[in-house]
Write a protein that binds this DNA or RNA. Sequence first.
DNA 1: GCCAATATTGAAACTCGTTCTAGATTACGC
DNA 2: GCGTAATCTAGAACGAGTTTCAATATTGGC
Lengths: 218, 218
Amino acid sequence: MMTTYTKAAGAPLTERQEARRRRILRATTRLAAQGGYDAVQMREVAELSEVALGTLYRYFPSKVHLLVATMYDQLEQLGGQLRRKPNKGLPPRDRVVDTLLRAFRGMQREPHLTEAMMRALQFADRSVSAEVDGVSRITTEMILDAIHEDLSVEPSTEELAVIRVITHTWHSSLISWLNGRASIAQVRLDIETVARLIPDEEPAAAAARAAAEDTRGE
Amino acid sequence: MMTTYTKAAGAPLTERQEARRRRILRATTRLAAQGGYDAVQMREVAELSEVALGTLYRYFPSKVHLLVATMYDQLEQLGGQLRRKPNKGLPPRDRVVDTLLRAFRGMQREPHLTEAMMRALQFADRSVSAEVDGVSRITTEMILDAIHEDLSVEPSTEELAVIRVITHTWHSSLISWLNGRASIAQVRLDIETVARLIPDEEPAAAAARAAAEDTRGE
DNA sequence: GCCAATATTGAAACTCGTTCTAGATTACGC
DNA sequence: GCGTAATCTAGAACGAGTTTCAATATTGGC
């Protein structure tokens, strides 16, 4: 769970292949951080990672796949960092806001990289579903971790819906900020606003209530 | 306000030019409805609308501009339709849900067209800010109309934040549905969930309270 | 170690968004 | 109406994502 776990384990990848894959992701991150989405040019990525263009396409079947995979990779690292600061003591809602704002601050440090990954994520079509779902899953886990101090509780349908809405808001308002259509303050306000959907009871009580609701709902 | 009002009135456009513009938008709509984003190819649009490629680019400086303009155009028509059904009697929250679900049903009828417009909207970068803002404005007005029976009230900052969050959710969950990553039921649930942010008081009372809050906040 | 299957390389080719050019055509002030 | 500036047309050309292919290298099974 904490070590590199390959997304779908389609092929076991030899050591050299794993190294190639990492070189590609590193090159992508570098180019994206410098010039954003447009600067990630497949020929450049291939050259920088010392891999033939055809090989690049064998590993990542499109530019969007490549950037979504990069996002997944970055999120795994970020996730580790965020988990290290448990921000206990706050009510769940504030913990979520705190987590998202901290992530946001991280992204402000690499706006081009963020832009490249977010544009790809939003532009992705069905052919990238699997990869996008991966990103979605890891994001959900991150928010879930922030809500529950106890990590073992099973999230309710209701809770998952709230988390989806939070994620939607998070992505869209990030895009607005990147495009200069929203200020940092506005992003923060939007996050605080959507976080109101999280009940402010004790996590345990909330879980219990949600579970009860789960039984009747559907 | 109800007649065709040109977005920025940059140039007054002669009659033939206005006709060209409409031909282009019509061709775009047609192609998009048939095959979605990928089927909207600039050469095809130019040919279908009987305009030279260079001219197409003079009217719409990129494919994304073109599709966002198409979305604006479609929204204007949709707005007229939605306004005709005032769905009175319901609390504001339900009116909003009702409006969005009705819009959603409209989009289900033309999934390819929806996909083309939404992908472009989400992919748009800063160079399309003005046009995206136009779409954003018309969407906000639509939701605002649904919240207030009285159209003349000035929206509060708080209310605008809620509307932004609703719009974010609306766009993102639509994309998820188009990409096959969310079911229709899930989109509906997400809309109902985010709508909980709308206070269920009388519109007048809500406005008053929001105004008061406005004074102290920010 | 050897063979067959698979992966990698390098380079050309193809597609579609976008730009550019040169020559008509149209709009408009006088 | 006339001349000029702006607009439009047809088509070539360019750029970046993607595909293809023959030649070469690596890997895994025996």
